Simulated assay, not measured.
Amino acid sequence: MGGVFGTIERIWRYPIKSTGGELLDEVAVDARGLAGDRLYAVRDAEGKFGSGKNTRRFRRMPGLLHLRSRYPGKSVTEPPELLDPDGVPVPDPTAYVRRYLGRNDVEVAREGTISHFDQLPLSVLTTATLDWVRAAVPGVPVDERRFRPNLLVRTPPGTPAFVEDEWFGGTARIGGALRLRFERSSERCVMTNEAQQDLPHSPLVLRAVAQAHDMRLDALATVVHPGRVRVGDTVEPV
């Protein structure tokens, strides 16, 4: 894993799980991941969290990707705002999602004993892999929002697609103190195909990833040492 992997191009945080996120210039990172990331979720009466799929912990709730969430200030100690499809903050997130989803058994809830994360705390995606997806589905608008990474890494010219696979088992330094260990990739689901804001629905996205890379795309990471990440930080192996 020699050489510099790349630089941080974009930082994404998703205060309310399965909604559109917010772009950040910098953020603190600890063992749980980005401060405030997926700290809230839409939870139903059975304790399942709104998602793009049905599993033991998650309940498919179509339409959440048309909403966005953000923290109104720099602190994540207060609940995040929920924004409607027009980008307008709603006064009562729980009341709004009940009307929006047509369900009276849901609420916007803070994380308790059960994690809101699908798998590991951080998802890292490279521009090399993202560019490959764009080329594989010409005519379909694609950007990193379809894959919901926390960190988009700008890789050097000539970097091959799915380079993230080469990082597994290794550790990287980002900025001054932050250290990540790359563990494995995410197994993708239909959420990558779903419409959100200006990205239309398309089954071709997941199909391309399935055929080329066994439904897997990104690098999931754990936090070895906390720190801060900033746009422009170098990502390099240690």
Rank of each mutant, 00 (worst) to 15 (best):
R57Q: 03
R57W: 02
F58V: 09
R60Y: 14
R60V: 02
M61C: 04
M61L: 15
M61F: 15
P62L: 09
P62D: 15
P62W: 12
P62C: 11
P62G: 09
G63Y: 05
L64H: 04
L65T: 10
H66N: 13
H66I: 03
H66Q: 13
H66G: 14
H66P: 02
L67D: 11
L67Q: 15
L67H: 12
R68D: 01
R68Y: 06
S69W: 07
S69I: 14
S69H: 07
S69E: 06
R70N: 01
R70C: 05
Y71T: 13
P72C: 05
P72A: 09
G73C: 09
G73W: 08
K74I: 01
K74H: 10
S75I: 04
V76N: 02
V76T: 12
T77A: 05
E78W: 03
E78R: 14
P79F: 03
P80Q: 04
E81I: 01
E81C: 01
E81R: 09
E81W: 09
L82V: 10
L82R: 00
L82A: 14
L82F: 15
L83A: 05
L83F: 09
D84F: 11
D84T: 02
P85K: 09
D86C: 01
D86K: 08
V88C: 05
V88P: 01
V88K: 06
V88F: 03
P89R: 06
P89A: 12
V90D: 00
P91A: 07
P91Y: 01
D92F: 00
P93E: 12
T94S: 10
A95H: 05
A95E: 14
Y96H: 11
Y96N: 06
V97S: 02
V97P: 14
V97D: 07
R98W: 13
R99P: 04
R99E: 14
Y100N: 05
L101R: 09
L101G: 08
L101C: 13
G102R: 12
G102K: 04
G102M: 11
G102E: 15
R103M: 14
N104F: 10
V106F: 13
V106E: 14
V106M: 11
V108N: 07
V108H: 13
A109Q: 06
R110Y: 08
R110W: 10
E111V: 13
E111C: 08
E111S: 07
G112W: 08
G112R: 15
G112Q: 06
G112N: 05
T113K: 13
T113Q: 09
I114E: 10
S115G: 04
S115L: 01
Q119Y: 01
Q119S: 14
Q119K: 12
L120W: 09
L120P: 04
P121R: 15
P121K: 15
S123L: 14
S123F: 11
S123G: 07
V124S: 07
V124E: 02
V124N: 03
L125C: 02
L125D: 05
T126Y: 10
T126Q: 06
T126F: 12
T127Q: 07
A128R: 11
A128W: 04
A128I: 05
T129K: 02
T129I: 08
L130I: 08
L130F: 03
D131H: 03
D131C: 07
W132Q: 11
W132T: 00
V133A: 06
V133G: 02
R134L: 00
